[in-house]
Nucleic acid binder design. Structure first.
Length: 356
DNA sequence: CAATCGTGGGT
DNA sequence: TACCCAAGATT
């Protein structure tokens, strides 16, 4: 099949099989002239970076209900946005989300730029996201290359070079497939195909609209493409979290620095995380006791976090961190590893018989 | 270019 | 259990 025929077959498949998502305008409505809101496209694309559709749905709904426009988001307080993002991971995305919203308001009159090149200059918008927004929201025939597209074209053209070295070659193939009409639907079709048919482990080649053109399928190597470089083993780091709760419900927390792991998020005071950490000092005077440990795995290391808990006096002085009143703090505002530490500590403190 | 940066679900 | 993976960006 020629590239144009592949693209046409893919779009026919998409017209009948497009997944329904809150941020998406389906192929039928799209061809009758309806376009998705660029704000929703941008927000969903950032949330979907290295993140599953299932995990994103509720976050997208909560963000758009609370901040319906990019202007609303730009005017939000940093802590409110970080709290709303808590649990979704890769927190640099949330920091850049705010920077980007504010740049759109201050530098672009509150409207998103309409070309991939201009979008690319915004914080947190890389090659993929710029192309996706330009194609989906503005009909620019930009080349959209995410993990799904990489997998689909690696198989279609039997590219055996391992990633990430294969990226330029895969991008060239993806560019050749991108049509001048319906580029947004094409991009979403490639991703839907990768997510539902051309899957990593057991691709459903029997129902694939491109099966007759697939060189990897013909060679019997589809399931092991794309090849990837082997991954390094994860070391184990250890650390301590001091979960200090006051009788009135206030929690002794600290705001983590913007740079680095969990940057910009709230967390429990504690020492460094390393393979051989020093014993950290408690953040406030109190009857601290070990109540358990959290085992949590990050992208590049395992963490064993010892949880120390104490019910602190009403007049306790915080040496590290700040008491956040019950009214303005929920465990759901914490990154997952910190929420796990809270849950263990609260269970232990409640077991003492006092109230929460 | 290689390292950094989260989390939950599937196998 | 341990590993893989998911609509990547930044430095």
């Amino acid at each position: 099949m020629r590239d144009e025929e592949l693209s046409a077959a893919l779009l026919r498949w998409y017209d009948a099989n497009a997944r329904v998502m809150p941020w998406r305008v389906g192929p039928e409505a799209r061809r009758s002239g309806q376009r998705p809101d660029p704000y929703g496209v941008w927000l969903s694309e950032v949330m979907l970076q290295q993140t599953t559709v299932a995990a994103v749905r509720d976050y997208f709904r909560r963000f758009t209900e609370r901040w319906p426009t990019v202007g609303d988001l730009a005017a939000a307080e940093d802590g409110q946005v970080m709290a709303e993002w808590a649990g979704l991971g890769y927190y640099a995305r949330a920091r850049n989300l705010l920077k980007c919203a504010r740049a759109v308001v201050s530098d672009h009159g509150g409207r998103f730029p309409e070309t991939a090149a201009a979008l690319r200059a915004l914080p947190g918008v890389g090659p993929y996201t710029a192309a996706a927004i330009a194609a989906i929201a503005f009909d620019e025939p930009a080349t959209v290359v995410d993990g799904n597209v990489e997998r689909v074209v690696a198989r279609l053209f039997a590219v055996e070079t391992p990633l990430p070295a294969a990226k330029p070659e895969l991008t060239a193939h993806a560019a050749a497939l991108t049509p001048r009409t319906r580029p947004g639907d094409h991009a979403q079709a490639m991703m839907d195909l990768g997510a539902t048919i051309c899957t990593p482990r057991n691709p459903a080649c029997g129902i694939c609209p491109l099966v007759t053109a697939c060189r990897a399928r013909a060679a019997g190597i589809a399931a092991r493409l794309p090849a990837k470089a082997p991954k390094p083993v994860k070391p184990t780091r250890r650390g301590t979290a001091f979960v200090g709760l006051r009788g009135d419900g206030a929690a002794l927390l600290e705001r983590r620095p913007d740079r680095g792991l969990l940057g910009g998020m709230l967390g429990w005071p504690g020492g460094e995380w390393s393979e051989a950490p020093l014993d950290p000092a408690p953040p406030a005077p109190g009857n601290w006791r070990r109540v358990g440990e959290v085992r949590h795995t990050f992208t590049h290391f395992h963490l064993v976090l010892e949880v120390q808990a104490a019910r602190l006096a009403p007049d306790a002085a915080a040496g590290t961190g700040t008491f956040v009143p019950r009214d303005s703090f929920s465990p759901a505002d914490l990154p997952t590893v910190m929420r796990k530490a809270h849950d263990i500590a609260r269970g232990a403190l409640e077991g003492d018989g006092a109230d929460g």
